[in-house]
């Protein structure tokens, strides 16, 4: 009886998931494995993937670099917030979330305005009599866009874990002879591993599949797998290939998060969001 009630209550969500996630997934799978012209079953779409392996590699590389930069930038921020007074914590938490209230597209476009050839930075530089820099269209700009957009996804899970680390554990470590550095490396860092893993996942997953950031801030050599997929649907009109690429990307993301989860589960027993 109780079980049925729970099922009934979760019904709307399950229905939603079926209509908007499971069925589209099936459609992706269907297109990925059928011929564009005849609609017959084929593995040809997947064969073409080899062509896009370098792009896939670039995407993974960019996502990993962004996630790591986010970790290095985000950890001290999360640590700082977690050690403020409760009210200050709330305010800083809100401020961290604030950029997320603005459209992702707008935020990326704003960077275009800052970085472009006649953008804010170059105008300033030339105004000061300095040579203009080539900022937009570079890998650096793409990474910058990713880090800027996804940094909150790193800070928030880290903060959530660090704030829960028992003060007494830190005192216990001091009591047992740890100086500040040792307290951090032997207690705080190991205990924040679940937050680190979930932060890395939450940055890596959207970063590896993004297309907008690379299109606006990147150049020809920073074409990412997300761009390729988008192109298949919008311009090349080859949704079968697009679907096949999507499928592979999805599997890749699943494998990556799976590895991270396994790593976290074995080492620290942490839960990755």
């Amino acid at each position: 009886m109780k079980k049925n009630k729970a099922l009934l209550l979760s019904g709307p969500y399950i229905l939603f998931m079926v209509i908007f996630t499971l069925i589209p997934l099936g459609v992706v799978g269907y297109f990925a494995l059928t011929d564009p012209d005849t609609g017959a079953f084929t593995l040809n779409n997947l064969k073409n993937l080899a062509l896009f392996l370098p792009t896939l590699g670039t995407s993974v590389g960019y996502a990993i670099v962004s996630a790591l930069i986010c970790l290095v930038l985000g950890y001290p921020v999360a640590y700082y917030i977690a050690h403020r007074k409760p009210l200050t914590q709330k305010i800083l938490y809100m401020l961290t979330m604030l950029p997320m209230c603005m459209s992702f597209l707008l935020r990326t476009l704003a960077w275009v305005g800052i970085l472009e050839t006649n953008g804010i930075i170059n105008t300033l530089l030339t105004g000061l009599g300095l040579p203009a820099l080539e900022l937009i269209g570079t890998p650096g700009a793409v990474i910058l866009g990713m880090v800027y957009n996804y940094l909150p996804y790193m800070i928030l899970p880290l903060y959530a874990i660090i704030v829960k680390i028992d003060r007494r554990l830190i005192e216990a470590a001091e009591d047992l002879g740890c100086n500040g550095v040792q307290v951090f490396s032997k207690v705080v860092l190991p205990l924040s591993t679940p937050g680190i893993l979930s932060g890395l996942t939450m940055v890596f997953v959207p970063a590896v599949s993004t297309f907008y950031i690379s299109q606006k801030l990147g150049g020809t050599e920073t074409m990412l797998i997300g761009d390729v997929i988008e192109r298949q649907f919008k311009y090349a009109n080859n949704r079968n290939l697009g679907a096949a690429l999507s499928l592979v990307l999805m599997l890749l993301v699943l494998v990556c998060t799976g590895i991270m989860n396994r790593f976290g589960g074995d080492e620290e027993g942490g839960v990755v969001v």
């Binding site: 554990l169 005192e171 216990a172 009591d175 047992l176 002879g177 740890c178 190991p190 027993g269």
Partner: peptide, 29 residues
Amino acid sequence: PAYQRQINTVFQRYALFPHLNVYDNIAFG
């Protein structure tokens, strides 16, 4: 500072390190 004192503490509700097993907790110091 605490870490240089020849004093050790048994904390209220123990404050054992959850990421270490029994052996590593005891061996910590």
